[in-house]
Design a protein around this nucleic acid. Structure first.
Lengths: 155, 155
DNA sequence: CAGGTTATGCAAAATTATTGCGCCAATAAG
DNA sequence: CTTATTGGCGCAATAATTTTGCATAACCTG
């Protein structure tokens, strides 16, 4: 893996604010020619620094009015292969995030569903019946203050 | 707010997989002309359904090796204006997500830092000194299994 | 069913991205 | 100290993509 130089970092910093910046605008922002910006972006993608481009949508506009965190504990034996245990969960489109964590629970899930009825349904028909689940806790989000904030790029 | 028709939903579904799809490819995927796709995308942006375009970066490549969840409880009086209490937190670039939640804590933060030393430093110098903080709990993520998954678009 | 509004595809125009090329700077080799 | 070699750079030409003007078709609404 390559080390990022000053220009790479400036490019990443600028593009994280708006991934649709034009090469001309980006070039001006980072003080480099458009063509060189293009080549550096291509290289950052090849090196796996840039993983992809996402569309940020308004969940409300899609009818997803409820965000919730689900905390899962699994039986000890299952933790050896956590991916197997939760693999089917990752494929569900209610599940936005899934992290394996330290502490009293093993996994933190962030889910988005239309309403509380759908959350309840998801919990009882998808989570609860899973093998090896030892404990489930749920916290409903009342407000999303920040989401998907840009990653810190060392200057 | 407008209602999304079948084409809008197909467009959003396709672009969530890859926001850089060309209008020609998108048009083929959703069975509409490129020009009309362009116009619909513009409208979805005006209507606030599409909030923006994000770059997905590899945190590791940026030297951010630690992801953690921080659970905060604030004093009762402060909850009236949670934005004030946490506004400065939202501006910090370690904070990726911040949700106000029901349950035993008031806020869930997701932070990304270089290492555990930086996490410790962030907790002791930024979180702890905050006025009105009643309780702090931290869980370190060992593994990110899914992050920023596409939102469900009703078909 | 008429009048008006909105959506659509095509083709032209405008914008944007990529690439070939020669140049320059830095580093390694002689 | 000079000379290759490498890699990054900007410019300009080329290619690709997006946007827009326009005529037609579909859709309401009364």
């Amino acid at each position: 893996m390559e080390t990022l130089d000053r220009f790479d970092r400036r490019i990443l910093h600028a593009l994280q604010r708006d991934a649709r910046l034009t090469l001309a605008s980006l070039a001006e922002a980072v003080n480099l020619s458009p063509s060189q910006c293009s080549r550096r972006i291509a290289r950052l993608e090849e090196n796996g620094v840039i993983l992809g481009h996402d569309l940020r949508l308004d969940p409300e506009a899609l009818g997803l009015k409820v965000t919730a965190f689900i905390f899962l504990s699994v039986d000890k034996g299952r933790m050896a292969s956590p991916r197997d245990a939760v693999a089917e969960l990752l494929a569900r489109d209610e599940v936005i995030d899934c992290h394996a964590v330290t502490g009293s629970h093993d996994f933190i899930l962030k889910v988005r569903v239309a309403d509380l009825a759908e959350l309840s349904h998801f919990l009882s028909t998808t989570i609860s019946p899973m093998e090896g689940i030892r404990d489930i806790a749920t916290q409903v989000a009342m407000n999303t203050l920040k989401e998907g904030g840009p990653l810190k790029v060392m200057p």
